[in-house]
C-alpha cells in the first residue's frame, strides 16, 4: 500500500499541471467563500442588520456556516475532478498504464490506487472546506459549535461522488479533452437540465435521484431559507439521499474496477 502510494507520488511530484490545479482549487475555495461572505456583509450594512437577518438568516455564523461553506465549495469540485481526469488520462496518453502492468503491478493495484486518488482528493477538499469554515467562522461573532457539522460530511460524500464519476469518465473516454468536456457538460448543465425535466414531467422531486444530483441535494440552497422553502419542492429525506448517493458511489467503483480488469490495455 505504501509502495503503491509512493509510486503515485513519484508520478506527480514534478508534474506542474497537478500542482497548479491543486493550487487553483485551494485558492478558489478561499476566494469564492470569502467573496460570498463579503457580499453578505455588504447586504447587511446596506439593508440594515435586522432586515438582512430576516431575509438571509445567519449563513456565516455557527451553526449555519457549516452548511453555507459546504454548499459554496461544491461549485469548485470540478477542479479536483479535473485533476483526477488528468491523472487517469495521462496514463493512457503516455501508455504508462501498460508499462505499469508490464513492470509487475496487477490490474487491481493500478486501478485501486487511482480510486485511492479519488479518496485523497475528496479528503483534501473536505479539509480545505473545514479550514475555510474555521477562518470565516472566526471573523463572525457567534461561538464555535459542532451543530450542523454533518453538512461537512455531506460535502465529503459529494466530493467523493464527483471524483469517482470523473475517474470513470477518464477511464471510459481515455482522452483528457473528451472526458473533461463531458464532465463539465454533465455537472454544469445536463445534471440540472435533466433533473428539471424529470421533476417537471413527473410533477415530483425525482430529479434529485440523478447521479451527483443526489449528493448535491444533501446541501440545499443555504440563503433566504424561508423564501426557498416556500417556492421550492421540498427535497427528499436526507437518509434516502445518502443511501442513493452511496449506491451510486458503489456502482461507479464497481464499474471502474470491472472495466479495467477486463479490457485490453
Amino acid at each position: 500500500m505504501q509502495r503503491l502510494l509512493s509510486i503515485e507520488w513519484y508520478k506527480i511530484r514534478y508534474y506542474k499541471t497537478f500542482w497548479i490545479l491543486l493550487g487553483l482549487f485551494v485558492l478558489g475555495m478561499f476566494c469564492l467563500n470569502y467573496l460570498v461572505f463579503g457580499m453578505n456583509v455588504k447586504v447587511k450594512t446596506q439593508a440594515g442588520e435586522q432586515n438582512a437577518d430576516l431575509i438571509l438568516g445567519h449563513p456565516y455564523s455557527y451553526p449555519d456556516i457549516w452548511h453555507t461553506v459546504s454548499f459554496m465549495s461544491g461549485y469548485l469540485l470540478f477542479l479536483p475532478g479535473l485533476i483526477i481526469i488528468t491523472v487517469m488520462t495521462n496514463e493512457y496518453t503516455y501508455k504508462t498504464h501498460r508499462q505499469n502492468i508490464i513492470d509487475g503491478w496487477t490490474r487491481l493495484q493500478f486501478i485501486g490506487v487511482k480510486l485511492i486518488w479519488a479518496l485523497i482528493l475528496a479528503v483534501i477538499s473536505t479539509v480545505v472546506a473545514l479550514v475555510v469554515v474555521l477562518w470565516l467562522g472566526a471573523l463572525g461573532t457567534s461561538p464555535f459549535g459542532f451543530t450542523k457539522f454533518a453538512f461537512l460530511g455531506y460535502f465529503f460524500l459529494e466530493a467523493l461522488s464527483y471524483m469517482s464519476i470523473a475517474l470513470l469518465l477518464g477511464l471510459l473516454l481515455k482522452r483528457a479533452g473528451l472526458a473533461i468536456a463531458l464532465f463539465f457538460l454533465y455537472i454544469m448543465i445536463l445534471k440540472n437540465a435533466i433533473a428539471y425535466l424529470i421533476d417537471h414531467l413527473t410533477s415530483s422531486n425525482a430529479g434529485n435521484y440523478l447521479p451527483l444530483k443526489s449528493a448535491d441535494a444533501l446541501l440545499p440552497f443555504p440563503f433566504i431559507k424561508d423564501l426557498a422553502k416556500a417556492i421550492m419542492q421540498p427535497p427528499p429525506p436526507v437518509t434516502t439521499l445518502i443511501v442513493v448517493s452511496v449506491v451510486y458511489l458503489g456502482l461507479f467503483v464497481w464499474a471502474v474496477i470491472g472495466i479495467f480488469q477486463k479490457s485490453d490495455l
Binding site: 508520478k11 514534478y14 506542474k16 495521462n90 504508462t96 501498460r98 505499469n100 513492470d103
Partner: peptide
C-alpha cells in the same frame, strides 16, 4: 519488457521514470 513503443511519463526525467519502473518491480 519492452513492448511496442517506449512508454514513459513525458514530463519526467530518465532517472525519475526509471525510479517508477524499479519501484513497481
Amino acid at each position: 519488457t519492452l513492448l511496442e513503443t517506449p512508454n514513459f511519463y513525458h514530463y519526467l526525467s530518465a532517472v525519475e521514470n526509471l525510479r517508477i519502473s524499479a519501484t513497481i518491480k
